Amino acid sequence: MDASLRISEIFYSLQGESNTVGLPTVFIRLTGCPLRCNYCDTAYAFTGGEKRSLQQILDQVKTYSTSYITVTGGEPLAQPACIDLLLNLLDAGYQVSLETSGALDVSKVDSRVVKVMDLKTPSSQEMQRNLYGNIQYLTAQDQVKFVIANEEDYQWSKQQLSEHDLSGRCQVLFSPVMDVMPAKDLADKILQDQLPVRFQIQLHKYLWNDARGK
């Protein structure tokens, strides 16, 4: 456990997205990200943070009474020791999910980790960073997420859904960009087209707006 990571924050909140939405969860937000998505809401995690050992991280996680841990960013896989952190959390008995941009290789992520992986839509302005080879490493427990801001994003997401048979491989999440794509509009589109996806909103933003540590 000699590895260390630069950490932006560790906090306890309700899971706001994914298929565990609403469950009390410890979030470990790693510092740094090679992407600059147009709709990013965690730009404060691009730089700064505090260097902490794996043991220090695990000790803080133990102070919260939950078995659910989400490792997020930034882009957590930008720090190689993220793989060690995930392994140590799993071995400690936690149910671990990883929120990743989909732009970095996920092949070394332990198969017990629930991967929540973005495919970047056109409005993100980072679509060219999608590493489509990652799709082969997604399983039924994993989730692929599309963050949708407009009609172009929606149509592109539908195309990826079909082209890669995503709903046959893993769970698929369609999420509106808050204050840009009206949630009802996206929900109506999904129902009209009878898509095999899970509609989601960012619960934490409805509860606490953009407050950090929530």
Rank of each mutant, 00 (worst) to 15 (best):
I201K: 06
A183I: 07
P34E: 04
M1A: 10
I148Q: 01
L173G: 07
L195G: 05
K108R: 15
L173K: 01
Q141M: 14
S101G: 08
G32D: 07
P182N: 02
Q200S: 15
Q136L: 13
Q55S: 08
N38A: 09
N130E: 07
T121L: 13
A103N: 05
K189Y: 08
G213H: 03
L54P: 03
Q141R: 15
H204W: 09
E152M: 06
I83H: 14
V21G: 00
Y39L: 05
V61C: 05
V96C: 00
Q155M: 02
R212K: 14
T47V: 01
T25G: 06
F199A: 10
F46M: 09
I28E: 09
K189V: 10
L86Y: 10
K62R: 15
Q95S: 11
V106C: 14
S97V: 02
Q79N: 13
K51E: 15
Q55N: 08
P182L: 12
S111Q: 14
Q194F: 04
Q125P: 02
N38I: 04
V116P: 01
L30D: 01
E99N: 05
Y39E: 09
I57H: 06
L195M: 03
A78E: 03
T72M: 02
I148K: 04
V106T: 15
V96G: 02
K214C: 07
L58V: 01
V106F: 04
L207Y: 02
D142P: 06
I201Y: 13
L161S: 10
E163K: 15
I201F: 11
Q202Y: 14
I69E: 01
L77P: 12
R112L: 09
L77E: 06
F174Q: 07
S53Y: 00
G16C: 06
M1W: 11
V113G: 05
L87G: 03
K62C: 14
D142W: 05
A140Y: 08
S111L: 10
G93P: 07
K145M: 08
L54C: 02
D110T: 06
